[in-house]
Amino acid sequence: MQNGNTAHIWKLLNTIPDPEIPAISIVELGVIRDVTFSDKSYTILITPTYSGCPAVKTFTDDIKECLKENGVRNFKLKLIYSPAWTTDWMTDKTKEKLRKYGIAPPSNTVRCPQCNSKNVEILSEFGATACKSMCRCSNCLEPFEFFKCI
């Protein structure tokens, strides 16, 4: 366990759900930038989505708990700001998970996650979390959240 198996660490991290959008993991969200091993210790580089996102504190604690529970004790977390987090890092698979969860994934064209209509209106650029805005579908009339592109 303590021999520098970074793939194993990635696997463990991928089991940690995003505290605010549990449909995807923090790895899928793109906040884990790298996992390295040197001097008998892992370094996990993390980056915030938004500067003030309160989820950062939560997922930092979640990472510590998850690794300790799985017997990994020789690690440190490092917060980095460059390159700045971008929704471009999300894979199509992750975006599809968001859509199924009811959140319109980041895209230049906002589509209703329920009926796939492009006939939508943005109600507010700011939503329940820093990364989302509030929308309504003019076709099926359902309100939904849109994951902002940054």
Binding site: Y50, S51, G52
Partner: peptide, 20 residues
């Protein structure tokens, strides 16, 4: 309500920037 949320979001961004 939307504006309340927007302004709190902006406050949070600014606190995050300040913290960095």
């Amino acid at each position: 309500l939307e504006e309340d949320i927007a302004m709190s979001n902006i406050a949070l961004d600014l606190f995050g920037q300040a913290n960095g």
